[in-house]
Design a protein around this nucleic acid. Structure first.
Lengths: 232, 232
DNA sequence: ATTCTGAATTATGCATTCATTATTCGTTTC
DNA sequence: GAAACGAATAATGAATGCATAATTCAGAAT
């Protein structure tokens, strides 16, 4: 049937491809929390049969991104206050560990690169450019994990990050929160340059704590408690 | 393990059932690291078709318990030094968090219950009964997570615990290591009774560090570097 | 008009089938 | 006798088919 299937050592499984695709759709908000995942619909969209699609759904379920109800199909997981409150401390613990490991492993070049990112972010903060700020911010956190050189840790963190995808759309930093975050980054950068792993770890924990607080505030302001949109 | 509220009528999916079953087979050593997972074979064993079995394999892959090679089927994941060295600090960070949360949340009854378990374990230590010791030890660690009341944290920890299943068969405590572990538990119990979350957290991190050290020693002694048993 | 009922429709869970890709094993060649 | 080739076999990846459960919606009853 698929005569035009591209050659070139296509060594990826279909289901894996679909997992990636759906995950992106969820993270990017194309599929929103609570949305029903209709198998026939997505099959048409991806032009695949139900078998690999269902395998993909199972994987996403294992990741916590999707929830299935017996004989009622799958929907994108909703996230509740409680889960946010639960997940952020975990992410804090993981980032703290990443920070400590990064301090232990970092080469001078690593530290220099981090400083560069930090200064860039500072500029975006001064310019009041939240989009650029967020992007560099993401890179900085990612960089800690790269330097930590612990694959399992990175994978786990990534998984949790994806699970909190829903908050991307509510996380509007108030000016004071933003300033607080910036100050924390300032301190983190300093600790990193001194390779004070313990200090950096504690700062990262606090930082994530603040983020959680911010998200919960934003959620309660919007009344997004995970129960909205009962139908879709 | 996933003990979500069971409706009165058994409404579990076949694939879910299979996941649980295979996971147990792996943890209990019936399926060893590196073992090939033959679909037809397991289908006959469970008396199911390949579809739900394959879905189960995908889930186990997402959990890291199983590894698939394109067009070459799945095998039980082997664990390497590096992975052990990577996973234990993560488990340490998660247990530390659990300990801190447990200190914050524990009722007096919780602390009393923990003391009871601890004393029981101490007796088994004195009696030189490693099996009973290990069992109570497991219960104690599990109890911290229960009191911490953070489902995501418990689930994540459980997942990592399962991934280290292979070490169960190499982890022979030397007398000195055992004494060290016992002393650490002594200190942990004291910190918990005083609700010194920070102290308990640090102790748990150290404790896991020791465990990692022990496991790595045992592995290198047995030359189990994840590459043994090339065929099976 | 609203609620209830039940047939028609649709979606899901699993089994089976089809098409490719690995693997095995017998034969040939050097 | 060992390596190399290739046909036979078996396993995997994906599509399709079938039975059942859920949902929808038209029509009846209140």
């Amino acid at each position: 049937m698929n005569v035009l299937s591209e050659p070139m050592i296509n060594r990826r499984s279909l289901s894996g491809e679909i997992v990636t695709h759906i995950r992106r759709m969820i993270v990017e908000g194309q599929l929103k929390p609570g949305d029903k995942i209709m198998e026939p619909e997505l099959c048409k969209l991806f032009n695949v049969s139900r078998t690999p699609l269902r395998e993909a759904i199972k994987v996403l379920t294992a990741e916590g991104l999707v929830t299935v109800e017996q004989n009622r199909g799958a929907r994108v997981s909703r996230i509740t206050y409680k889960e946010i409150a639960d997940l952020f401390p975990i992410m804090g613990a993981l980032e703290a560990l990443a920070g400590e490991l990064a301090c232990a492993n970092a080469s001078d070049a690593d530290i220099k690169g981090m400083r560069k990112l930090h200064d860039q972010m500072t500029r975006h903060y001064r310019d009041g450019d939240p989009f650029q700020y967020i992007e560099i911010n993401r890179q900085i956190h990612q960089e800690f994990f790269r330097i930590a050189a612990n694959e399992a840790l990175s994978a786990l963190y990534e998984q949790l990050l994806v699970r909190t995808h829903a908050i991307r759309f509510v996380a509007k930093k108030s000016p004071s929160r933003w300033r607080e975050a910036m100050e924390q980054h300032e301190a983190m950068m300093a600790a990193f340059e001194l390779r004070h792993g313990n200090t950096l770890g504690n700062l990262l924990r606090e930082h994530l704590q603040s983020k959680a607080q911010m998200v919960i505030e934003a959620m309660s302001a919007l009344n997004l408690d995970g129960q909205e949109d009962p139908e879709r």
